[in-house]
Amino acid sequence: MPNLPDFSATAAKDVSNSKHSSHKRIRSIGLILLSVILLGGIVFLLAPSPIEPAKWDAPAAPSFQEASPWQKNNKFSSAQLVADAPKSPEFITFDKEGSLYTGDADGKIYKVRFDAADNPQEAQLFADTKGTPNGLKFDTNGNLIVADIQKGLLSIAPSGTIKVLADQVDGTPIYLANELDIAQDGSIYFSDTSNYGRVTFREIAENKPHGRLLKYDPVTKRATVLLEGLYFANGIALSREEDYVLVSESYHYQLTRYWLKGPKMGTSDIFADNLAGFPDNITTDEQGHFWVGIFTTRIPFVDQMHRSPWLARFMAKLPESLLSGASAPAKHGLAAEFSAEGKLIGSWHDPEGLLYGVTTVVNHGGYLYIGTAPGGSQGVHRVALTK
């Protein structure tokens, strides 16, 4: 009887060959992928950066330890929710009747009334700019003046009718109208944050000044430039005597003063520097003190980029979507109170981070009302002031 073929051996050999071929294909695919990754990495490293950053040795951040004016505390930790309809209440203002107004990132502006016991009522929609309303303040005629990031400087009548006051200055666009204050003569001082036209990590990395301080004249109905070369021009506040106006330079941790009267009229200087974070909006109380919202405490990586332009060049090449976390606000609520002379009186904290991303602090009716921006906690809050 003839010998039968050894099918088991043949099958084993076929399986072995198949596995070998499969391993070869996997190795080949792996080598191709590795080559693509290495080539992509080389191209990425050799590609020019979209920015040429300026070097800056930022001062060391102030300490939150005991005996410092920035000493950590829990003054914000007991904050009460006033309204949750505005998710990101960038700025807060009040009308003559004591009702609160605030805008949201989706364009809507809300009104919150209070009962006889000072309890907040449900927020009501007042207007919709179809943009992003940030700065809000009433003029003497009862119109709500709005600095809208997308639309420019607006006036909203009590009926809700919206009118554009200015979207250009000296023949150039108002790129990012942010915050404002109104003088007794009706002049409106407001910030044009950056000619980037939006908030971008790339501008932080570049570390160059793209912001402006603007003034709108209600008589001539024209906007003019008062001051250029600001590092992310943000919050605006007039002094009680209206002899100067402050503007926050968020990316350099300072408040700049522009003189409107007196021997220094038309010049600027530093009002307060080396803040413990990125200053946002500024409001003034009845004592003439300035309250400053600190959107986030200092970010060590950002200061490192400023000291190392090569690192900034590298980071600017990355997609913006990958960088949002690098500039997200720390979960540490923070605000500061300054005297009219620029002395830090004290700071308010929530180190637990239940309230954070603070943009605005308004001293009104025995409370501090607190606003935030996208990336921070949501809703309008308040804490009681103690004597």
Rank of each mutant, 00 (worst) to 15 (best):
Q124N: 12
K130N: 11
R113T: 14
Y110G: 08
F114C: 02
K108N: 05
F94N: 05
L125Y: 00
A123M: 12
T129R: 02
N119G: 10
T93R: 06
P120G: 08
Q124L: 11
T102H: 02
E122V: 15
T102D: 00
K111P: 07
S99M: 13
D104Q: 07
G131Y: 03
Q80E: 14
G103L: 00
V82E: 00
N119E: 14
T129C: 03
F91M: 10
K137W: 08
G98C: 09
A127E: 07
G131A: 11
Y110D: 05
K130H: 12
E97R: 15
P120S: 09
S99A: 15
Q124E: 15
Q80V: 14
R113C: 12
P89W: 01
S88G: 07
P133C: 08
I92S: 04
A83S: 13
I92Y: 02
Y110S: 04
E97H: 15
S88M: 08
L136Q: 09
S99N: 12
G135H: 04
G107S: 06
D104F: 03
P86G: 08
D106L: 07
N119W: 09
P133T: 08
L100K: 00
L100V: 05
K108H: 05
V112M: 00
K108T: 01
A116F: 09
L81Y: 04
V112A: 05
S88L: 07
G107H: 01
A83W: 02
Q80P: 03
A123R: 06
V112R: 04
G103S: 03
A123L: 09
E122M: 15
D115C: 05
K137P: 06
V82H: 05
F114V: 01
E97S: 15
I92G: 08
A117G: 14
A117T: 15
S88Q: 08
D115N: 13
T129Q: 06
I109G: 01
R113G: 10
T129A: 03
N134C: 14
F91A: 13
A117I: 10
D104T: 05
K111W: 05
R113Y: 10
A127N: 06
Y110E: 02
K96L: 13
